[in-house]
């Protein structure tokens, strides 16, 4: 189940087998799938587009390695099993996974693996709560994934950031141990206020759906919601988490190059990752 070789690695990072590894180092994995998004196709091209965009950026100060893509069967449940196996291999090597989606359903795989090793705080940065019910469906899709994750024993805390727009129901309450910070509130959130929501004693998994960003900046995504966060708001949030909390892993999902305008969305995704990697030294020391 080794990853297929990418045409271009993220930031030119070496293959996982060639890189000198250091415990806690970031290991990027592509998850090129649309299987969890029954409405919009194109997110499967996200990993390649983000890697391509990263080539135009100065590489981050702290290097990582690139696992390549996890190719898989056309069945979401089985594909997620492969992603879970990859996550285990990465963790066994002492590395931290950074998944490039793909649609948001993929986050289930790494989180389910990581929470089994110890309690987690899930920071879910997204315009949607992804808490739709899934009665009757065989498996979760990208709109239900957080609801499913919330039922995992090791997911002790959920911090949802970016919910906004006009929605069918009031989604601000996601159950015990969860808090929702709407986009309007997130704009004014200080680092201190953010970190107060994220327990210091729990490792974090940070999942970034690019639709948290205002679609006028990042139009290449399947379910854009107007009036989102400026990329700099998101960068500030991410930087605070990287510098002040232990991150067990992270992902960047729902970048859809088919819907993008002048590759601006994949560029923003690459810049956010670069900024996180720039400060990854705090993680290596933790």
């Amino acid at each position: 189940m080794s990853g297929a070789g990418p045409r271009a690695s993220l930031f030119g990072w070496p293959d996982r087998n060639l890189a000198p590894t250091e415990p806690g180092m970031l290991c990027v994995v592509g998850a090129p799938t649309n299987l969890g998004n029954p409405i919009a196709r194109g997110a499967a091209k996200g990993p390649a587009a983000i890697r391509e965009a990263s080539r135009l950026l100065t590489p981050p100060r702290v290097p990582g390695c690139d696992w390549g893509d996890v190719e898989g069967p056309a069945n979401l449940a089985r594909y997620l099993e492969r992603l879970a196996e990859t996550t285990k291999e990465i963790v066994e090597r002492g590395l931290r996974p950074l998944f490039l989606g793909g649609d948001h359903s993929i986050s289930y795989a790494p989180v389910s693996v990581l929470q089994s090793a110890g309690d987690l705080c899930l920071v879910w940065i997204d315009a949607h709560t992804d808490f739709s019910p899934w009665q009757g469906a065989a498996f979760h899709d990208h709109k239900q994934v957080l609801r499913r994750l919330s039922k995992l024993h090791g997911v002790r805390r959920i911090v949802q950031i970016g919910y906004r727009g006009i929605t069918v129901g009031d989604e601000r309450s996601l159950g015990d141990g969860a808090v929702v910070v709407t986009s309007s509130r997130a704009r004014g959130l200080t680092d201190v206020e953010l970190l107060a929501l994220v327990p210091e004693d729990l490792p974090c998994y940070v999942s970034i759906d690019i639709d948290a960003v205002d679609p006028l900046h990042a139009p290449g995504t399947g379910a854009p919601v107007p009036d989102g966060l400026h990329p700099l708001h998101l960068r500030r949030i991410l930087r605070a988490l990287v510098r002040s909390r232990r991150l067990a892993g992270l992902d960047m999902v729902e970048v859809n190059p088919v819907l993008d305008v002048q590759a601006s969305t994949s560029a923003i995704a690459a810049e956010l990752i670069r900024d996180a990697a720039d400060h990854w030294g705090f993680q290596l020391a933790s």
């Binding site: 006009i166 929605t167 069918v168 129901g169 989604e171 601000r172 709407t182 009036d227």
Partner: peptide, 21 residues
């Protein structure tokens, strides 16, 4: 932005404006 009815009285449920809460 689906138009839904309330189960309790069969009247339209409306929508939640998360920006204005």
């Amino acid at each position: 932005y689906l138009y839904r009815m309330r189960i309790t009285d069969g009247r339209p449920n409306g929508w939640f404006d998360a920006n204005r809460e």
